[in-house]
Every structure is written in structure tokens, then in C-alpha cells.
Write a protein that binds this DNA or RNA. Sequence first.
RNA 1: GCGGCUGUAGCUCAGCUGGUUAGAGCGCUGGCUUGUGGCGCCAGAGGUCGAUGGUUCAACUCCUUCCAGCCGUACCA
Length: 486
Amino acid sequence: MKARQPRGFVDRAAGDIRATDQMMTKIRAVYELYGFDPVETPMFEYTDALGKFLPDTDRPNEGVFSLQDDDEQWMSLRYDLTAPLARHFAQNINELQTPYRTYRAGYVFRNEKPGPGRFRQFMQFDADTVGAPNPSADAEMCMMMADTMEALGIARGDYVVRVNNRKVLDGVMEAIGIGGDDNAERRLGVLRAIDKLDKFGLDGVRLLLGEGRMDDSGDFTKGAGLNDDQIEFVLSEISAEAGSQSSLPSNASLQQGYAELEQIKALIEGAGYGADQIKIDPSVVRGLEYYTGPVYECELTFPVTNEKGETVTFGSVAGGGRYDGLIKRFTGQDIPATGFSIGVSRLMTALKNLGKLETTDAIAPVVVCVMDRDNEALSGYQNMVQELRNNGIRAEMYQGNPKQFGKQLQYADRRGSPIAIIQGSDERASGEVQVKDLVEGMRLSQQISDNEEWRASRPAQQTIKRDDLVSTVRTILAAQAEERNG
RNA sequence: GCGGCUGUAGCUCAGCUGGUUAGAGCGCUGGCUUGUGGCGCCAGAGGUCGAUGGUUCAACUCCUUCCAGCCGUACCA
């Protein structure tokens, strides 16, 4: 049998897990500071609770991973953290105090084609306020996003939170005469086209708003089919400076959208945030389905170099918006809500590129070598290990086959151990141990080319009293730490 | 989903216009070495050449189909 994971799923190694933990700790601290409390929901939900994907018998797993419980009910792995929150709130509506301010993190699952940096299981970290109808709640989300980026070490100017309002986009489309149920399909096409602004630029969007666009492989994407006047209206609107009113015939949706954006702008300015952190941007679209008001996303603006040496802009690492209709599906009553989601894995990749990820693995343990294998010697080694541990120093006794001493040092070396402890019968008889600084020894090795000489010299090794073990190890570790930190 | 490109050892790849027993470097395992990591020397393991069907005296090499991966694109709650 070949050992492998399902496509789009990955194992995570120690370094990734530790780095993720550190990130999550920082994110959580910001959310807590803002007065949000944690909540957790299960990975599985009944499929109908997740929303639009009701599996049909032909394709039960389109988009989501679904299976039938033994009572025939369909259940699915969650594909985001918002739908489960709506379910949780609706279910506990009588107990939960509103506005309900909550955050949660966890894996979500999407059954779709994986790609580089795109997996079928990935981590999201969400914050939401339920029962808050005013744009002030949206403004708070934007500020929290900005604070989170800075808490993670992303400098001001290397990120920007961009805010728009779905009502503005709706108003624009109404103004160019594609409002109403008849044009739902066309409006979707327009939104999709606008969403491609990052990728294809204004010219690409122009094509997609009109007839369509041919991609590099020769594949043709059908456009939204607007006429030239309509296209120019849309383009001028999405490329307009923040806050400038368009020349289009106004309507209620447009006016309300602008008013809400004005209010958000006033709040973030009042809180001291500048346009280099949060700005109104009429080209932000976000997901197409359930957003009903302000939408916002956080984008990284610095160029990063990928493994292949190509320069790419990273784009969006977090996004959200107002979803006033989502909870109503369960309760029948209007419950306004707004919130956002951080793509943890994606953001981690970006931080790695920025050098802001604390990739310093935990210091590997001190390895106590096994020289003699009689019980007296072994208990002495174990005693040293325990003493180091009791003093807060990671340590382990070599647990492999000890017959070749060279293998033990090789193990310590490849494990990245800072120090090896050696005590043979001679040292034991005189109450001594050898302490070997593996980092210093590696440096010395570069000056010695002959293998015999390298061995005989026993580099970076000192003989000390057994009683001085802990203090000597501490001294060496401190020196190594100082060197690492420059 | 659509279009293009690519599948040879754990990894990176070589393998001529089809020719007998498929190679290299690195890595891995063991040994030199039951008192010393790097460097070194010796030995070894590991491949139904992505899978299937076909053409041929003969296929890693050419063709079909499938699968997987990469790039672009579409969809993306």
C-alpha cells in the first residue's frame, strides 16, 4: 500500500504548528481586547443548516463534503464558520445577549480543486457581532482587522483594509438599468467582472463587462454583455476616488450606501485610523451571495517572492461583511450581523515571506548520551536528564541503539540539539561529565579538513564536575541564544 | 468544468532517430568506529519507467484511454 493523504489535504510538521499557534495567540489577544468571547461549533452540521448546498442524489458532494447519517439525514463538513455561527445563534437566541460578540477558529472544508496554497482543509479565524444593525459595528470590524495585522507584525503601509458597500454596487446597477429580477444573472456577471479588477486591471474588467475575454490558453470567458455607456458608468464608479458622488441618476440604494460609508469613515477617522490603514474603495466586491451591506477585506500590499523567485502580490488575506439575512433563515425574524474571517494558512504563508513569522523552532533538547549500558550508568544518565528537566531545560536520554556512540552524536546533530552530555566510566568514577557544545563544534569543524584530526580534537568539549551540570548547560545555552539574536 | 504542458529511485534529473541487463548526483541503511557530529572510504537497499490498451521482431521511447501533478481560466458559500 502506498502511504498518501487525500488530494488537497496536508500533514503539518512541528514548525508549522508552532508558528500557527503563535499567530493564533496574537490574533486572539486582539479580539479579546475588543471584548469578543470565544465559542466553538462542531465540524459537521446538518447540510440544510449550511445554506445553499443541498446535496442531490447525483452529486451529493459538490462543493462540500457530505454524508448521510444512519437516520438518512444529510450532514456536511462546514465550509466556513459563518453559517454555523448563524445556526448557533438562532438555536440559542433566547439565552444569548445581543449584541453577541464572538470569535472562533477552526478548520473548514471545501470539496473543490486544490491548488498551490489552496487546500481542501484550512484554518479560519472569525469574529462576528450579531444583533448590531448599525455601520458602527462594521467600522469596528475594519479597525479590528487593521489592529490584528499590526499585532502580527505587518507594518502600516504593508496592508490595507478596503471597505465598500453592497448597496452602492446595487445602486449603480439599478442606475444603469439592470435592476429587477429579470437581470439577476447579468448583475452577477457584473459583480464577478468587478471582482477581477486586481487580476486583470481596468481593461480586463472592461472586456468582461462587455462581450468577454480570452485568456492566455485561448479559453474564452463570456462577459456580462453591457453596452459601452453602461460599461463606462460602471468603470468610472469603481475607479472613483473614495467619497466622490457619481454622476449617475441617484436612487435610494445608492444614497443609503454612500451614507453608511460616510458614517464608517467618520468612525474610523475618529478612532485615529488613517487612509493608509482603512480606506473606502468602490471596487471591493467580496463573495456574491449573502452580503447585504458594508463589505470589507484586508489585502497585503507588499510584493513577495515565491519559491520560484517570481514576484507576486499576495492579495486578500481576510474578508467579511454584513449578512443581515443569514439568521432569518432559521428564526424568521430579522437579525442583523456583521463579521469577518481571516485565512490563517494563507496569512501564514505571507508572514513567512515577510520574515515576520517566528520560524525559530523550539530549541531542540539536550541529548544525554548512553555510554555504558549497565543499570548503574543508565540510572545516572536518567538522573541527569531529570535534573535538567526539573530546571526547565528540554532534555532527553538517547533512546536508540547505543552500541555506536557516533550514531548518538549524529542523532543529536541532525536533531539540532544544542548540547550533548557524555559520561563514560572514567568520568563517572571521578564525578565528572563531558559537556559538548554542538553549535560551537560545528563552527570549529570548518577549520579542520582532516577527519582523523577532527575526531581526535574533540571540539568544543569541556570536562566539568557532575554537580555543575545544570549551571554549565545554562551558560552554554545562554551564549548560544545571544549569538542567535545577533 | 475548459485549454495547455508534464509523469523514469525518497529528491533533482539523464536515457540518442524504438534495440538486449534502466543510470547519475544527492539522500537513506549498514560497516570502517562499543569514546566523538562535519569531511572521508567500503558495501547495500530502493524502479512492473504514472496506469491501461494498442502498433512493432522489439516500447522508458510511438499512438488510445484513464489517473495524477503543474500553469492559465471558470466557479468559489
